[in-house]
Design a protein around this nucleic acid. Sequence first.
DNA 1: CTGTTAGCGCCTTCAT
DNA 2: ATGAAGGCGCTAACAG
Lengths: 354, 354
Amino acid sequence: MYYFYPDRIFIMSEKTTIYDIAKELNITAATVSRALNNNPKISQSTRKLVLETANKMNYKQNRLALALRSGKSNNIGVIVPRINTNFFASVIRGIEEELHPEGYHVIICQTHEDENREIENINTLLNAQVDGILMSVSNLAEDNNHYIERVVKKNIPLIFFDRKKDMKDVSSVTIDDYQASYQTTQHLIDQGCNKIAFFSGDRSLEIYRERYRGYEQALLDNNISINKEYIITVKSNVIEGQEATEKLLSLDNPPNAIFSTSDFAALGAIQKLKENGIRIPEDFCVFGFGNEPFTKFMELTISTVDQSPLEMGKMAAQVFLDKINNQNSKKTENKVVIMPKLLIRQSSTRIADN
Amino acid sequence: MYYFYPDRIFIMSEKTTIYDIAKELNITAATVSRALNNNPKISQSTRKLVLETANKMNYKQNRLALALRSGKSNNIGVIVPRINTNFFASVIRGIEEELHPEGYHVIICQTHEDENREIENINTLLNAQVDGILMSVSNLAEDNNHYIERVVKKNIPLIFFDRKKDMKDVSSVTIDDYQASYQTTQHLIDQGCNKIAFFSGDRSLEIYRERYRGYEQALLDNNISINKEYIITVKSNVIEGQEATEKLLSLDNPPNAIFSTSDFAALGAIQKLKENGIRIPEDFCVFGFGNEPFTKFMELTISTVDQSPLEMGKMAAQVFLDKINNQNSKKTENKVVIMPKLLIRQSSTRIADN
DNA sequence: CTGTTAGCGCCTTCAT
DNA sequence: ATGAAGGCGCTAACAG
């Protein structure tokens, strides 16, 4: 059966509501709504009729109205320091891939490492009535969690990924940074390196504390004493890697390996080492962190730790879905830890590992 | 003056509406609304009172209600093939940076180069009542624009960036691909290369047609005949770059330069050339496209074309804002063309250019 | 099975 | 300057 409403075509191209359909069929909007929502209490015939007419009139549900009524916006907010790095872009991609099929939209916000923008972003997202917030924190201060607690109080699922804070009732998805760091250090030791420098990130962030802990423990377990001069805090960029390496090479007792918790700093290190005629990996091993795409494109491929960002995004999304769907899991915190993958490449391979 | 409502603290922490404020002050919600929105017809005293009380009760405007009423969601949709590449991530970053201060949220959708997902995404975004759509098209078919036209018909601003289609009433922001390509080819000729191969992308996309056109014209203008064997269509990855290069090297009359419209393919080319003991740039020049971060990290830095993705995102956002704010510009199409920047690095530099 | 009613939170005429 | 009323589009409770 076909319906033609030639004289109403223009109106239809504007926007159709369930009232328009109801009027067309001489029924009530409620009935239309029921038909559209597969409510069981409705006859097959009217359902069919409504569906066909809706289709004919090009009806599209207004999700804003639905959102207002249900209190659910079907949007979730993602807060990251920045989007244009491989890591965060991949996490977001993972989140998006997991949530889109479930009907959620992802709203992204960047903090640029500014804690005020982080607070601002949270407020905006709460304001926008998001159904959940997934974030990688930028605010390093331990004591200023007030604005984050507001999210928890509102009973809105909050999930940290990668850069987390330790908070009650907040779930998180991270990799096992301690393990990653321990294994890397052990690997370097296995390669014959006994003087291993460590490029740390800002240790007010838990991930960097964990990485340091892994490094330290591996040294201890191998009876290698810790040399404070080998431990340098660097930002994640090439220049700081170069500078730190320069500092190391000028020591009376320079190291013979660098474990950099940043791929970019590792690259800077390699450049500086080559400049000084030091052979890699024969004289000196270098290990990065993050599996930035360029690490495998280099002439000398760089060993690094893969953080499975896509997987991390998907896991974070799943934790969110679990919280939304299971009332009982809503209150409990859920700490997912992903195992890191060591990618052992040329910059650290003197001896075949396996 | 301060207000304390100790017995209502719990209720306040739930959610405050303008009705709650009205009740508190024994006035009407309409008045509260007016006070909050700086409506002139209201006394200073009540405005002050309302503002203070709203603050005290931790009132936050429900943007969903506002959206439903006004028909404006304050969300805009961004559709890209994928998010985890430097180019698209940077464009999105630009869009976000420009639109966030204006109170807009960015909803991102990925097509994975699948035209069905593109259609799906557009429907979802329209459904979600976005105020505008910014997209880089994946659907290559010239004839299937029906679903895009629906956006235009609904009078929702639509702006293409980078990968555009030529459509009436649709604005776009692109770089001048023809110029980029012409200049690059000219540069290679200036370096003494007279047999320049061309790695093209899929020429159903306008950007790749334009790049080919620039290449062709530059050759013609220099009286260099076009050799069909030198023109190879490759996907944007390392492997295809290697394969194409292998093919070129096996020719009776191999080229002495490659202009690759993909940085990844350019990298593959360089690897393959080195493998064959060909010196770059002495024997052979290579030029990429896109300014992927790795191009400047290589031992041999790769010449490439910068597409100003951040700028492109910002421009696209500005075109959108202009359309929203100026009724008269809403109908007219606005084609912004950004000048590309040639980054001449080691892989193509025999002779100093300037 | 279907209709009636009401309300999600906000803003904006229309009165007063 | 403020109040009253209605509606954005949808669904759920309550009647029949």
